[in-house]
Design a protein around this nucleic acid. Structure first.
Length: 267
DNA sequence: ATGGTGGATTTTCCA
């Protein structure tokens, strides 16, 4: 069977009803992972999600900041969250999909403006979470899990993941300490960057464009911050991957667009 | 070099 999994940073789910409907209608994900829902669990739009065909919901939200959710047409099992960096931020959800596929939905800290962990606690937090994740997944290397790791990782690792590699080397999201840290995390377990398997690194590819640019499409000063990785056991089942750039031009858009993989798996 | 916009909750913080 074909399994379509989408990740999307909604930047406030309560303001994105029309975008959510379009994603469901036009991308038709079986599983939709959200970040930055910016709402507490009891204020999440459960009924809307059920009406859109997702009876299985796992919401890990908090007031005003962060928050992740998994919407699924297929049953979800063992939904839970892990605690990272010893705080209560809702930046991660884990669910098991049919066929024993372990799904990790992440919202890694943006990291503030100053790329110096001594001067900027938010950047320190970002690097700390990366390192903790590297230790966790590194410790599981070779366990043979069928795993999807996705979300807003807030780092654009490749030169072609930003509009200007040279001009962004000192900008949080593309500094060497971050890009090298993200690659270390990826390699600690041996994750395959699914989207870059389909769209080669020779092509520029972005998933986020700042609201601050007058004409996001014409200036095209984007970054690839949203990712979908597959474990070695799952990577051979990748069929295709897609970034829905057009979503940035929808009415009242999020600043991030949906990223989707299609897998061919036996449940 | 600077500031630009948008979201949630205020009298600013975060991205």
């Amino acid at each position: 069977m074909s399994l379509r999994i989408t990740t999307w940073n909604a930047n406030s789910i309560r303001l994105r009803e029309s975008s959510l409907k379009r994603i469901v209608a036009e991308i038709r994900p079986d599983v939709l992972c959200l970040q930055e829902i910016k709402v507490e669990d009891d204020k999440f739009p459960y009924d809307l999600c059920r009406e859109l065909g997702f009876p299985h919901l796992h919401v890990h939200g908090q007031k005003a900041y962060h928050g992740v959710a998994v919407l699924s047409k297929l049953p979800l099992e063992q939904c839970h969250a892990r605690k990272w960096c010893g705080n209560g931020d809702c930046r991660h959800a884990i669910c098991t999909l049919p066929g024993g596929i372990e799904l990790h939905n992440f919202y890694i800290p943006a990291g503030g403006d100053i790329p110096d962990p001594e001067a900027n606690p938010k950047f320190r937090h970002k690097l700390d979470m990366l390192e903790e994740l590297t230790g966790y997944f590194g410790g599981r290397k070779g366990d043979g899990a069928r795993m999807v790791v996705l979300g807003d990782l807030n780092i654009a690792p490749l030169e072609t993941d930003v509009w200007s590699h040279r001009q962004l080397l000192d900008v949080v999201s593309h500094t060497p300490v971050e890009t090298e840290g993200l690659i270390r995390l990826q390699e600690a377990y041996g994750f395959v960057d699914a989207v870059r398997t389909v769209i080669p690194p020779s092509q520029k590819l972005f998933t986020w464009w700042s609201y601050r640019n007058r004409d996001w499409d014409a200036s095209d000063r984007g970054r690839r911050l949203d990712h979908i990785w597959l474990s070695p056991a799952l990577a051979p089942h990748l069929v295709t991957a897609e970034v829905r750039r057009a979503a940035r031009g929808w009415e009242n858009p999020s600043d991030h667009v949906p990223v989707t993989v299609e897998l061919s798996v036996r449940p």
